[in-house]
Simulated scan of single mutants.
Amino acid sequence: MLRARDAMDRAYAQPLDVPALARIAHVSPAHFARTFRATFGETPHRYLQRRRVERAMFLLRETDRSITDICFEVGFGSPGTFSRTFRDVVGRSPREYRKQAVALDVPTCFTMAWMRPSA
């Protein structure tokens, strides 16, 4: 399970599916999905989405790149899916998040701790 999670952490922007991750963990896809959820408290898909959103949060805070560019860079296939997932995880849209992060003007370490998405 740790190998698969590490692969998701490294290659979060790549298209990763349960069968590919199960091969990394050397188990069947069904066993992988059940065991991953039992071990880490969320499904592999949700974990991967959260990792992508965390990276997007950093890019929104630290760069002036467009939201669409960030969406595709972190591995989402469409801006609509990105916005919906971002709102589900963070509680506000990417645009609202960027405005609030810019307005805060506090050290990044405090911003990251305060705005870290919940699982």
Rank of each mutant, 00 (worst) to 15 (best):
A103I: 11
T85R: 02
L60E: 03
G77W: 04
S78M: 08
S93G: 13
L59E: 09
A30H: 12
R34W: 14
D69L: 11
A103E: 13
C71D: 04
P79F: 07
A30Q: 12
P19N: 07
V18K: 01
L16Y: 01
L16Q: 05
V27Y: 06
R55G: 01
R46K: 15
L60M: 07
P29A: 09
G75E: 06
E62Q: 09
Y47G: 07
R37V: 09
D69P: 01
P15W: 03
K99N: 14
H31W: 14
F86S: 08
R87F: 10
F40D: 01
V27Q: 11
V18D: 00
R34G: 03
D88T: 15
T39R: 13
Y12N: 00
E73S: 10
F76I: 11
L59P: 01
F58Q: 06
A25K: 08
F72G: 02
G75F: 04
R46I: 15
P19W: 09
A22C: 02
Y47F: 15
R52T: 05
A30D: 12
T35G: 02
R10K: 10
K99L: 14
T85D: 10
S66N: 04
A101R: 12
D69Q: 12
M8G: 00
V90N: 00
F72V: 05
S78L: 06
A11H: 07
R23C: 06
E62M: 09
V74P: 02
P15Y: 03
F82V: 11
D69T: 11
F32M: 00
S93D: 14
L60S: 03
T85V: 15
V27C: 13
P44Y: 07
V18I: 11
P29M: 10
F76N: 04
